[in-house]
Design a protein around this nucleic acid. Structure first.
Lengths: 248, 248
DNA sequence: TTGCTCCTCACGTCACGTGAGGTGGC
DNA sequence: TTGCTCCTCACGTCACGTGAGGTGGC
């Protein structure tokens, strides 16, 4: 006969775990010896190994009870289910390994691939890290709110970037971040932007802007106005031009 | 800006988990709006994704705090450690799958391979299921108490089974389980056993039986005496013969 | 006698889950 | 007005871990 620590040691669980299984009614209480110590036979070894094997596999104790009480056919079915769950766990862990590795390398985890591609293109055409970071923040919020529209919006943005004229204006706005509000270049830039807007206004007539689009636009421009006197001034000038042209 | 459920939903955690991370100081509390609701920015999305990624990988929240606070070099080292732990987890889960599968197929999980082989040989030479079960129970207890001696003991047992004379005696004892205590065959069997014991006594002179061996012998014979009047009588007769031969 | 194992409460831990009771936005 | 989201306590859960205080075997 075995003491509780011999039993626990052989099977590879703690003494406390064995007592816990007794409490839960998972493992039958064995006979006691003269001094009240539990004395275990071979059946306890067998049952404890079954319990540990299932528990290690992540089966909740409440279900182990059922599994061990089941008939052979049901037992085999339960085993198959547990095995499938283990396989799934292994697949999940593999995914987790990839994600952990990606934690070092930035955006991949946080943003949809199309947005990462868009940000990379901004860098490629010469946009500053500052504005790429601002765009990144805006797109993170957009993705969180309206993930289903992101592909569409990014496609629009990519189309805009295909136009050399738009690219020049974008990069000029980027530069304007550092300009003094009194800089005469701001006036000229606002004029160019208004002219561009007027020219493509016809093409935009058929666009359907819903409330989600409005949120998207306002989120991006709210980001853009942050902490640059040059940009704030540029925005004002644009508003003036727009009113003058009767667009707004 | 995002509400708590937008944030949680995008990252794939529960609202309660986000609040829990605030409580633990893992995720910074954001600004509140006019009605006291939390409003999240892009930074919260980034940090929550980091927390979730590490937590999914099984990193305790207490350590996530440290990992996120660490510099890039230490961060990479921590990531490498976490990745190694994940790899180990995957290996463990594979082992668990094998063990789960083995739960259906009997002894492999419970007994050392040499014992399983010994039990198979008993069956092969014609031993009854009854005595194989008794041996099994005895070897389970022996394995739990003195796993380091099992190989040695089994080697001895296998050597005994190589002797055709021993095999015959073993199988006769097996049969004797069902004999009546008055059966005259018991007397003859006890005589044969005594003669055999006397003949091999010389070869046994150099055996070193320590206290562990004594425990082993007594455990196995205690099992054997269970619930058979024939066996109990056989044991008495053997004791008589042994005393007569001056062995005991 | 000392150290080790055993016993039974019973509170602690970890990462949230789950109401309880109440308020704000559409 | 109704239903949904948000808020803050605060107790519950799961599988044990960890002393607390005491007794038996070598």
């Amino acid at each position: 006969m075995l003491t509780i620590s011999q039993l626990a040691g052989y099977v590879g669980v703690t003494v406390r775990a064995v007592r816990h299984y007794h409490q839960r009614g998972l493992l039958a209480e064995p006979e006691r010896d003269a001094s009240g110590y539990r004395r275990y036979g071979a059946d306890a070894v067998i049952n404890l190994i079954r319990i540990k094997t299932l528990a290690d596999a992540g089966v909740p104790l409440a279900r182990i009870d059922d599994v061990l009480a089941a008939g052979p056919a049901e037992f085999s079915r339960a085993i198959a289910g547990i095995d499938a769950a283990l396989e799934q766990r292994i697949r999940d862990l593999r995914k987790h390994r990839q994600r952990i590795a990606a934690l070092d390398s930035g955006d991949a985890l946080i943003l949809p691939a199309v947005v990462v591609g868009y940000l990379a293109r901004l860098r490629a055409i010469g946009a500053s890290e500052r504005i790429v970071e601002l765009e990144r923040g805006g797109w993170i919020l957009l993705s969180a709110r309206s993930q289903h529209r992101i592909d569409e919006w990014i496609a629009d943005k990519q189309k805009q970037l295909d136009d050399p004229e738009f690219r020049d204006l974008y990069l000029a706005c980027d530069q304007a971040f550092e300009w003094d509000p009194a800089d005469p270049r701001l006036e000229r830039l606002a004029g160019d932007m208004a002219a561009y807007a007027a020219r493509i206004a016809g093409a935009r007539k058929d666009w359907n802007l819903d409330s989600e689009d409005m949120v998207a636009t306002s989120l991006l421009s709210a980001q853009a106005e942050v902490s640059s006197p040059g940009w704030r001034r540029l925005n004002e000038l644009c508003a003036v031009k727009a009113r003058a042209a009767g667009i707004a």
